[in-house]
Amino acid sequence: MSLSTESQAKIDRELTKYPPEHRQAAVMSALRIAQTEKGWLSKETIAEVADYLGIPAIAALEVATFYNMYELEPVGKYKITVCTNISCMLRDSAEIVTHLEKKLGIGFNETTADGQFTLKEGECMGCCGGAPLFHINNTQMHEYLTPEKVDQILEGLDK
């Protein structure tokens, strides 16, 4: 239910970056840390983060719903976010998307029945030189994708 002490310690470390009277400043990190622990941000988790920082829950919800890397619904163990923006589109991100859709049997914003994978469409990730690309769980960037490379990456993941 509540955040682990590890997560709380991480949030505390983020808080040291800001003046003590501006605890809200840490909400971006705190929500990320909570999401990393829980997999997604339930309303309870958001309220808990808000509580931890001493800010109104609605202020945390505003942030959680504004930035699109926060997940407000449960996602699979591996969330694959494929960039389809112009530079990736020009280098055929559509082929990567089709390949993933076929391979996983899901479309964007869907999760495989076994709860392993969720597919998301992303906006520009600022790595356009490596197009086409995706990142997994908001943390691991994979560039210069081809269908073969996608297969290798997926096989390399712990099931």
Partner: peptide, 9 residues
């Protein structure tokens, strides 16, 4: 300090 965005152009 390093701080981060989380998906907002």
């Amino acid at each position: 300090y390093a701080v981060h965005g989380y998906g907002a152009y």
